[in-house]
Amino acid sequence: MQTGRRQDDALTGRSALLIDDNAFMRRLVRSLLRQFGFDDIHEAADGSEALLRVTERQFDVIVCDWMMEPTDGYAFVRSLRQHAVPAVQTLPVVMLTAVAAQNKVMAARDAGVTEYLVKPVSSGKLRARLIAALIRPRDFVVADDYVGPDRRRRDDVEYQGTRRRLSDRLRSLTDEEGEDWANAAANYATVLRGDIERMQVELAGIAADARPSFEAWRSVHRMAHDLKGQAPTFGYVAAAEIAGSLERLLRPAMQAPDMLERAGERRLRAGKTHVEALSLILEQGITGRSPETDALAERLNRTVERVHRESLL
């Protein structure tokens, strides 16, 4: 299979603003955009910085993560769609995120997102969404209760009419991965190891504190969330499953911080167990699922349920 750069005439020469607080993901997506033919790519680490960027110059498209601080992708899109400058207000936004809950997807749609792509991502999926956003744009609607692309779009796999989504038609095409993608995958073990070490540091700090540290727990939750979405992209399916379990362990407390006062010791032990499991599978070179990793995931999930039950007492 040819691994050289593949460019789409429709995307060649385009400009993009890439918004993500994870430097590794920015490098990866930047390399893919270059592979597609984009020649003017700018970056921002969160929505606040991005809002400054869009006032400085014009872009053809924005690729945006959801979970960022201090201004996340959802808040950014809402602000963008209320911008006073029409050329800024109507910019197409492809949200590339690990947030997959249906209510969040619908919220992003209602905020005015143009295309929504859930990690793990491949170059083919991203390319399809960019083409859909740039080449077959939907009418832009400005109404009292909504500003953004027309939401009335069929999403029926059986539908073959003229309004069928281009991204749906492209979904089955062969996905040719470029050299930049392969290099990023080869380097991901280093990224994963760094995240594991940072989570270990945060958990050690939590153990040393007399009271639960919301900021430290939030940091662990964010890293687990990112790993859940990123790891499958590079073949680390087992790590993604464990990270997803860790993210579920902490999600209720992130939504209701007072829960950190409950089941504190059990939550800390469970958090450490999850991170130790991540470290072990990385050390052993385990990437895909197996009966052993499935059994480990099941034990971790039971631990999560026990913490949740104790937190409700």
Results as ranks from 00 to 15, higher is better:
161 G>H: 05
162 T>W: 02
163 R>Q: 06
164 R>F: 10
165 R>D: 09
165 R>T: 01
167 S>A: 14
167 S>V: 04
168 D>Y: 08
168 D>V: 05
169 R>A: 15
170 L>F: 07
171 R>G: 06
171 R>I: 10
173 L>N: 09
174 T>M: 11
175 D>I: 05
175 D>H: 04
176 E>H: 10
178 G>I: 03
179 E>Y: 07
180 D>A: 14
180 D>N: 06
180 D>R: 02
181 W>C: 02
181 W>T: 04
181 W>D: 07
181 W>Q: 01
182 A>P: 02
183 N>M: 13
184 A>R: 04
184 A>Y: 00
185 A>E: 10
186 A>Y: 03
186 A>M: 14
186 A>T: 09
188 Y>I: 04
189 A>M: 06
190 T>C: 06
191 V>A: 00
193 R>P: 01
194 G>Q: 14
195 D>M: 07
196 I>Q: 03
197 E>P: 00
198 R>M: 12
201 V>P: 00
201 V>Q: 09
204 A>Y: 05
208 A>H: 13
209 D>P: 04
212 P>N: 08
214 F>I: 02
216 A>P: 00
216 A>M: 09
218 R>N: 12
221 H>Y: 14
221 H>T: 01
223 M>R: 12
225 H>C: 01
228 K>M: 09
229 G>L: 09
229 G>P: 04
229 G>A: 11
230 Q>M: 15
231 A>F: 08
231 A>W: 03
234 F>R: 02
234 F>V: 00
236 Y>G: 05
237 V>S: 06
238 A>H: 09
239 A>L: 13
240 A>I: 01
243 A>M: 07
244 G>Q: 08
245 S>I: 05
246 L>Y: 00
248 R>M: 12
248 R>I: 03
249 L>M: 11
249 L>T: 04
249 L>Y: 10
250 L>I: 02
251 R>A: 14
253 A>T: 07
254 M>A: 14
254 M>R: 11
255 Q>Y: 11
256 A>N: 15
256 A>P: 01
259 M>V: 09
260 L>K: 07
262 R>Q: 14
263 A>N: 08
263 A>G: 13
263 A>Y: 04
264 G>M: 12
264 G>N: 13
265 E>K: 06
265 E>F: 06
266 R>H: 13
266 R>W: 07
267 R>L: 13
267 R>T: 05
271 G>C: 10
271 G>Q: 06
271 G>H: 03
272 K>C: 09
